[in-house]
Each structure stands twice: as structure tokens, then as C-alpha cells.
């Protein structure tokens, strides 16, 4: 295959990575923005989404798509409930103190990981995509007769990857509408800005925090459900999304949702492309280097308003 078509394949891999990363990082960013909590356990919510997708898909009888659809609804819901409970019994108890929440969420990370290991086991398990179609992609070329489309052998992708990209884009748009346009979003933004004054105007900050933490976790879980047909469910799979989400949130600017999405596309695309042409390890090294540069030269991130 020529370089052009090869790059296009890599770009699709990158777009899938970017799509899932945008969801996961948006959850982390939302939680940090509104609650000022650095959630070290965020990757475990992603992992739980994937593992629960496997469990639900196996419990629901009938065709593969039915199980998968059930998982798409149930896994984020269950993970959201779990997160709300964790907020109530752990984060609220330490009064959202920045240092203590870091330690508490590290504890949460190990509890969730080890509990999954005990209940689900160390195996990586696949979940079938709801449909299994491959799409051959055309490659445009300028010939003597102008633009012609050719179908190079091997240039194709699974329809599922395109669905993942579309679903993530839709969900990201929904999160923006929720935060920027809805009443719930207004309450979240007011709480983010000044939680004491928010209370003085009747906003139940404790409930807003529980719901924000649940929403952030559910976004990571949906990311996990969407990738599980591509990447198998495994109890240690939360590490990379956590690292990359942190990278994205720092590059985008702490607390800026727009910056988070832009940085997710940047990091996701480069991660996908570098992984295809070179190696996933090199991709992580580059992303980490980029964060170091951002922290040195633009500590507020791309869209951040104040220095972090």
C-alpha cells in the first residue's frame, strides 16, 4: 500500500482514539472543573465500563446487538451510580480537600481494580460489536482523466470504528449543550465558580457534586463500552486512558471543556498515527513530552484562563 492510503488508515485509528479520549477526558475535566477534584480513579471507571459491557452482553439473551445495546445503557448507569456513592461516602467525608481527594481516589483506584480482578479475573475478554461489517474505502487520485476513485486492496475499516467516532462526537456535543445551555449546566457552572455563593442562592452543592462525579464517571464508562469491541476488556485497561486524559486536560487548560476536546483530538490523532507507523510506546512518550512543554511554556494550557 502507498503512503497516502496507509496514512488514511492511521488517521482512522487516530480518530477512534481521539473520539474515546475526548469522552474520557471530558469526564475528568468536568469533575476537575466543577469540583476541583483530581480523580486518579477516573481510568477505572473507563475499565469498569468495558468490563460491565462484557458482563451485560453475556447476561442478556438474544442477538449480540441486543446485549451490546443493553450494555451501552446499563454500564454507564451502573458506573455513574457507583461514582455517586463514592462521592457520598469518600469525597464528601474529606470535604473535597484537594490533597486528601488525591489520596482517596488513589485508594479508590486500587479498590476498583482489585475488586474487578477478584470478580472478573485476569483474562482479557472480547465483546462482539453489534454488527460486523467492513467498509472498503476509496482513495482519490489525479489521473489523465481527472479525479478518479480507486479502491486499494487493504484500505478499509470496520463500520464499528466509524460508529464509535460518530457516537463520541454526538455525546461530546450533548455534553456541551448540557453544560452551556441547560438549567443543570447553569447550576454546575455557578457551583464551579463560587460554591459558597451558589449555596446562598439555593443550589444544593452536595447534590451537584454527586451528579457531576457520576456524569464524569459515566462518560469514561461510555468510552469503555465503545472501545470494548475493538480492544478487549481487562482489569488493567484503565491506565492508558487515565494518563492520556490527564495529558489532554493539562494541554487543553484545566477546567476548559473546549480546550479538553481540542487537545483530545490533537493527542488522540497523534497517538493513533504514531502508534500505527512507529509504536504505541513512542506515542505515549511524545504525548508526555508535549505536556512537559506545555507546562513549561504555557502552564495555563491552550484554552486555560489562569495559570494552573
Amino acid at each position: 500500500m502507498d503512503f497516502g492510503p496507509h496514512l488514511m488508515l492511521a488517521a482512522i485509528e487516530g480518530a477512534v482514539a481521539a473520539a474515546v479520549l475526548a469522552l474520557t477526558a471530558l469526564g475528568l475535566s468536568l469533575v476537575f472543573g466543577v469540583m476541583r477534584v483530581v480523580n486518579v480513579a477516573h481510568g477505572e471507571f473507563f475499565m469498569l465500563g468495558a468490563v460491565l459491557a462484557w458482563a451485560v452482553a453475556h447476561l442478556v439473551p438474544g442477538p449480540a446487538w441486543a446485549g451490546y445495546l443493553a450494555a451501552l445503557v446499563l454500564a454507564p448507569l451502573l458506573v455513574g451510580l457507583l461514582a455517586a456513592a463514592a462521592d457520598w461516602v469518600v469525597l464528601k467525608r474529606v470535604q473535597y480537600d484537594p490533597e486528601r481527594t488525591i489520596v482517596a481516589t488513589i485508594g479508590l483506584l486500587y479498590i476498583l481494580q482489585q475488586a474487578t480482578l477478584m470478580a472478573y479475573g485476569p483474562e482479557a475478554r472480547p465483546v462482539a460489536a453489534p454488527f460486523d461489517a467492513r467498509i472498503a474505502l476509496p482513495w482519490p487520485e489525479w489521473g489523465p482523466e481527472g479525479l478518479v476513485l480507486t479502491w486499494p486492496w487493504g484500505l478499509g475499516t470496520t463500520a464499528w470504528k466509524l460508529v464509535v467516532i460518530a457516537a463520541a462526537a454526538l455525546l461530546v456535543a450533548l455534553v456541551f449543550v448540557l453544560v452551556q445551555r441547560s438549567r443543570a449546566g447553569l447550576v454546575m457552572r455557578a457551583t464551579q465558580f463560587d460554591r459558597e455563593t451558589a449555596q446562598a442562592f439555593g443550589i444544593p452543592v452536595a447534590r451537584v457534586f454527586a451528579l457531576t462525579f457520576a456524569l464524569g464517571a459515566a462518560l469514561a464508562a461510555i468510552g469503555g463500552v465503545l472501545v470494548v469491541p475493538i480492544q478487549q476488556a481487562h482489569y488493567l485497561m484503565g491506565g492508558d486512558p487515565l494518563l492520556l486524559s490527564f495529558i489532554v486536560v493539562i494541554i487543553g487548560g484545566l477546567g476548559s471543556l473546549r480546550g479538553t476536546v481540542v487537545a483530545a483530538i490533537l493527542i488522540g490523532m497523534s497517538d493513533g498515527i504514531v502508534s500505527v507507523f512507529f509504536s504505541p510506546t513512542l506515542a505515549k512518550i511524545l504525548a508526555t513530552l508535549l505536556v512537559a512543554f506545555v507546562l513549561i511554556f504555557r502552564p495555563q494550557g491552550l484554552y486555560g484562563t489562569r495559570a494552573a
Binding site: R183, L186, V187, R189, F193, T197, A198, F201
Partner: peptide, 13 residues
Amino acid sequence: FAELTVAENLAIG
């Protein structure tokens, strides 16, 4: 709520 608009500040009230 300095980053919210005037209308949004009133809406909170």
C-alpha cells in the same frame, strides 16, 4: 458569578 452572563446570574436567583 463573574463568568456567567447577567441573564444567567439573574436566572440563578
